[in-house]
Design a protein around this nucleic acid. Structure first.
Length: 279
DNA sequence: CGGGCGGCCTGGAGGC
DNA sequence: TGCCTCCAGGCCGCCC
């Protein structure tokens, strides 16, 4: 399940590999992704264009072209991007293929089809429906705990739900929300507007820490091709609470608990994350 | 408008 | 062993 660290790793790998390549052909083998793939638009905006750069926004990959059009991709939860030679046989779930002018191709493979692929006309990236309402990047240098503290003042929802809200802050998936809250010693159920400034500063630092740690580990799994797998990166990650229901807390030995919040598994140590809850 | 929730989708795990 | 159910997950759109 590609989260922000995996997408960042893929972004870096693509940036090192595909600028300067021209898209010679596009093939859509299955258009049924999260949104139907608009092959006509892909061809209109991307065909014959040369890649100039690759960027990441939230968990979206943005591939820029010479004429200022942009290819936007999301890997959903099972998506992979593969940079392969043209001779490689198709996999059952290879849905969209971009053929480059060097006999290689970028393949979008996504068994569960939660991902998306679209093309954006020049100048329209900021208004694209997938990008227009995104919150702040957790790793942006200008971001401070004070910013988040201020924005949370009127929000009563549990802090964990807010952390996972892409309109508030992007790229913090379920695993990293759980881990960051544990390391910050904050109960995931704490109303967001009850988090102190000091706790926000600590929490942001812990979010950045778990993301950076995962990025550094993901980077080591990159091999000969653009490997969006990320799975091996996950195995290297030491998860303190996620998936550890019933096991002893790595910090205090108390039993890790699991609850469900907004339909998502939530793991925490009731002793280390006691916080200041009134409930 | 804040915010919870259903649904999309398929492979893997667990139960019988 | 096979079948059946359940679960995971990001994110949009619906609804209160």
């Amino acid at each position: 399940m590609p989260e922000l660290p995996e997408v960042e790793t893929i972004c870096c790998a693509l940036q090192q590999n595909i600028p300067g390549l021209k898209v010679q052909d596009i093939r859509v083998r299955d258009a049924r992704l999260r949104w139907p793939v608009d092959e006509i638009r892909l061809r209109q905006l991307v065909l014959g264009q040369t890649v100039t750069g690759v960027h990441r926004r939230a968990k979206y990959l943005l591939i820029g072209f010479e004429q200022e059009s942009t290819l936007i991709l999301h890997l959903g939860m099972s998506g992979r991007l593969l940079l392969l030679s043209d001779s490689q046989p198709f996999h059952k779930h290879d849905h969209v293929i971009f053929y480059f002018d060097d006999a290689r191709q970028l393949r979008f493979r996504d068994p569960r089809r939660f991902g998306m692929v679209d093309a954006i006309p020049p100048g329209a990236a900021s208004t694209h429906p997938r990008l227009a309402h995104l919150g702040v990047e957790p790793l942006s240098t200008g971001l401070s705990g004070n910013d988040l503290f201020s924005r949370a003042q009127r929000l009563q929802r549990p802090i964990k739900n807010l952390l996972m809200d892409a309109g508030f802050i992007v790229g913090v998936g379920n695993i990293y929300a759980n881990e960051a809250l544990f390391h910050a010693g904050i109960d995931p159920r704490t109303p967001a507007n009850e988090i102190t400034l000091a706790d926000w500063q600590n929490l942001l630092a812990r979010v950045q820490e778990v993301l950076r740690d995962a990025i550094s580990k993901g980077g080591t799994t990159l091999n000969d091709f653009v490997n969006s797998n990320g799975e091996t990166g996950y195995f290297q990650l030491v998860l303190a609470v996620y998936g550890r229901e019933g096991q002893p807390c790595v910090r205090c030995g108390s039993t890790v608990e699991r609850i469900v919040m907004v339909g998502r598994s939530t793991f925490f140590c009731p002793a280390c994350q006691s916080g200041k809850r009134s409930g």
